[in-house]
């Protein structure tokens, strides 16, 4: 089997669905370089008008948190309810707070 695909790196694609919204991850694709990655992303992920802006990022450039560490990594944030407005009692009748 002649090669080729193996040399085309993987890119992660992020689409901004419309103005005012953030780019969200849509999927991935293969492309030899950034220019073609962008064009392929346009054809693959926005052919029904799903986007107004695209990012393509080499998959190898993503640094991710380890799923093994998800407890120690994220648990410290779970026990600080004072960061949320619902933690506080508001005296009856007070509005716009």
């Amino acid at each position: 089997m002649s090669g080729g695909d193996a040399d085309w790196p993987l890119w992660e694609v992020f689409v901004r669905p419309r103005r005012g919204l953030a780019h969200t991850h849509a999927g991935s694709l293969h492309a030899p370089d950034a220019e073609l990655a962008l064009r392929n992303a346009r054809d693959l992920f926005t052919r029904r008008g799903e986007g107004v802006s695209l990012w393509v990022v080499p998959a190898a450039a993503v640094t991710a948190s380890s799923p093994d560490e998800r407890d120690p990594f994220f648990r410290p944030a779970a026990d600080k309810p004072y960061r949320h407005p619902t933690f506080y009692e508001v005296p009856e009748g007070v509005r716009h707070l």
């Binding site: 695909d5 392929n40 693959l44």
Partner: peptide
């Protein structure tokens, strides 16, 4: 020649 191009050519 490559699947991505199937989509592009059809467009």
């Amino acid at each position: 020649p490559v699947l991505e191009e199937e989509v592009a050519l059809a467009n």
